[in-house]
Design a protein around this nucleic acid. Structure first.
Lengths: 199, 199
DNA sequence: GTCTATATCGCGATAGAC
DNA sequence: GTCTATCGCGATATAGAC
């Protein structure tokens, strides 16, 4: 695709870009449709030419993210499960998950808030957690098959790991005064790998 | 206090009870003030005689919970920090945290959603996480002082542990088909204690 | 497709009789 | 203190000209 786009495509892109910025800045739930159109310098009505609702826009952003992730990961998966008890390999996985979380902060943030707004009984958040940790779960199941003792059911352990990551990814203020990405990744890796009982 | 209450106290209690039930069933954000009054068989206007807003009601529920927890914990804290690397003691702490989460599901749920609705940049969720994990943090600092190697900054490790707990506590459907409390507690204890690398 | 203007509505909050 | 009735605002969504 070339650099030049039609006016319509430009508007859609502007709306998406504005939405991503606002979702990260003030959250998904707090962001009104009029906020998005204003930030994109478009009229309110134009929004509905491209999206049915805020939720629809979010799904579009998610699709973009998946497409991008698909490109980046193409051919990188060798199909052979990795050994999560190996320090280097675990760190790599934690770093990858953390990276996705940070680079796609607007979308992850929004999905998180959206799932949460559905309420606990809806199970939406649990589904999200499960979906986001399939890779962890598969690797844990692989370990279990090979006779490694796990602290519990692979799906539960995977969800616990993922929950820890998502929660920190959402809650930790991204810039400045907090912890560096490397520090967070090292800490989480260490915590998961050795546990509290030490090396 | 006796069993009989005035009409006013009865109304306030009914509103609180209805709110707790609805918060657990459909979430805090989804629950409208009119839902609460309807469930409590009271008129909409009566709500404001007792609370200024939904947020105010939540604070009242939180105060009730703290009062109750205060009674339960009175005299149980011996001031001496515990050793979180001891399996029994760690499990006790995890079980305690999990128990609070489950027994006060409506309030915890609501606090969680409320903090989240403020958006990520507000830092509200991070503050909640930090506040809910002071006990973990203190124990970790105690370990560090005694020369134990930790995977990272005590506050960060504590937040990670707390995040894992809160996230699962919120996301896991409370009844029936899921995991038992004992299973969850054992899994989390094992995960934190031995880490993935095993005993 | 984009704009301006407006219809519609849910819901928080208040007024005033009882 | 509780009720019924209503106001007012914020936000979604649509209508119709350009």
């Amino acid at each position: 695709m070339g650099v030049r786009k039609g006016r319509a495509a430009q508007t859609e892109a502007a709306l998406k870009a504005a939405a991503r910025r606002l979702f990260a800045e003030q959250g998904y739930l707090n962001t009104k449709i009029t906020d998005i159109t204003a930030a994109a310098d478009r009229a309110t009505g134009s929004f509905y030419q491209h999206f049915d609702s805020k939720d629809d826009l979010l799904r579009a952003l998610l699709a973009d993210m998946h497409a991008q992730a698909g490109e980046a990961l193409a051919g990188r998966e060798d199909g052979e499960p990795h050994d999560l008890t190996d320090p280097g390999q675990l760190r790599e996985h934690v770093a990858a998950a953390w990276g996705v979380m940070r680079e796609n902060r607007p979308v992850m943030t929004a999905l998180f808030e959206s799932a949460m707004a559905a309420g606990p009984a809806s199970g939406a958040l649990w589904e999200r957690l499960a979906a986001d940790t399939v890779m962890f779960r598969e690797h844990l199941e692989y370990l279990r098959e090979r006779g490694r003792p796990l602290p519990g059911d692979p799906a539960l352990v995977a969800a616990a790991m993922g929950g820890m990551l998502s929660m920190l990814g959402y809650a930790l203020p991204p810039g400045g005064d907090g912890y560096s990405d490397g520090e967070v990744i090292d800490t989480l890796t260490g915590l998961l790998l050795r546990g509290l009982a030490g090396a």
